[in-house]
């Protein structure tokens, strides 16, 4: 414990004094008039009571979501934007009824009688996410580092009286990507546009994105080149820090030894987070020491001219 404390930066190292100015700089870029005392962003998730013929509207990042409640129908209307880091967060429940736009996706669900409230639960992506460091680097043998990654979240919509969730909408739809040794074999993943960072303060902080700390240990002989990392988000739970409304996942520990990558997950929210509550369970339960082959996967032989 003592050893780790000396080598590893703890929450105190990053704490207020160092962090605050950087946050201000970031806000200057984002907003023309920065406020020194930033109130935590409003809570966009949870239970929202809706009367019949009422509509709730959420603008989370570049995604717009409207949920209508009719006596016998729930109607979900959403549209997606292109900006993964759009700072907009606007909750309007109940809102004025608006006409359906051209780009809107409409889904209707019929019931004999609809019941309030509607619940929005933040969840992580349904496929693994592939992330790159800003510049590829190597980890020497018997070394370990911690990277921070910002993950996009999905909104799970469920209503009272129905066990199964109605639908899931991504706050931002990441691009597809292929992770595997070749074009013959591999796995379909999402590509994270935001690069993995060594310093947590360099991550964009958004109320609809979660931060995942990844500890990577190299137990192999020889260095481990980090070009692409597959993050198995389906095994991760989500935690929300009460004060800042920031989402976190457990700490992910990827240990490379004998050419295999073992996955272990931290217990509860990571130490970087303040007081948190757990908001959603992982989609799948991870087996102990799962081999997930999280590194590499660069296509060297498919780049040629035909």
């Amino acid at each position: 414990m003592g050893l780790i404390d000396q080598n590893q930066p703890t929450i105190d190292d990053y704490d207020r004094s160092e962090l605050e100015p950087e946050v201000d700089v970031e806000q200057v870029v984002l907003e023309p008039e920065p406020e020194p005392e930033v109130a935590p962003p409003p809570r966009w998730w949870g239970d929202f009571p809706l009367e019949e013929y009422q509509v709730g509207r959420w603008q989370v990042g570049s995604m717009t979501l409207s949920i209508y409640r009719l006596p016998r129908e729930w109607r979900i209307i959403y549209s997606q934007g292109n900006d993964p880091l759009d700072p907009t967060l606007d909750i309007d429940v109940p809102a004025e009824v608006e006409a359906i736009g051209i780009d809107d996706n409409v889904r209707r669900y019929m019931f004999s009688q609809t019941q309030s409230p509607v619940t929005l639960t933040p969840v992580l992506a349904d496929r693994p996410l592939v992330v790159r460091p800003a510049i590829p680097f190597a980890i020497e043998t018997r070394e370990e580092i911690t990277l921070y990654v910002s993950l996009p979240m999905w909104l799970r919509i469920s209503v009272a009286g129905v066990q199964q969730p109605l639908y899931e909408v991504p706050s931002f739809r990441p691009s597809d990507t292929w992770f595997g040794d070749s074009t013959l074999q591999g796995e379909l993943c999402y590509a994270a546009r935001a690069p993995a960072q060594l310093n947590i303060s360099e991550l964009p902080k958004r109320p609809y994105r979660a931060i995942a700390p990844i500890l990577i240990r190299n137990r192999d002989e020889g260095s481990l080149v980090l070009d692409r990392i597959k993050i198995p988000v389906e095994y991760l739970a989500l935690y929300n820090s009460k004060e800042t409304n920031q989402f976190w996942t457990q700490k992910i520990i990827l240990e490379q030894s004998n050419g295999r990558t073992k996955l272990r997950l931290g217990w509860g929210s990571p130490q970087e987070a303040d007081k948190t509550e757990r908001v959603s369970a992982p989609r799948e339960r991870a087996r102990r020491g799962l081999d997930i082959g999280a590194f590499g996967g660069i296509f060297r032989n498919t780049r040629g001219l035909d």
């Binding site: 990441p174 691009s175 597809d176 990507t177 292929w178 074009t183 590509a191 996967g297 780049r303």
Partner: peptide
């Protein structure tokens, strides 16, 4: 290519 979510990020798009 980057803006279309169905286009794979890797293998990368190719310009000839």
């Amino acid at each position: 290519a980057e803006d279309n979510p169905l286009v794979l990020e890797e293998p990368q798009p190719l310009f000839i």
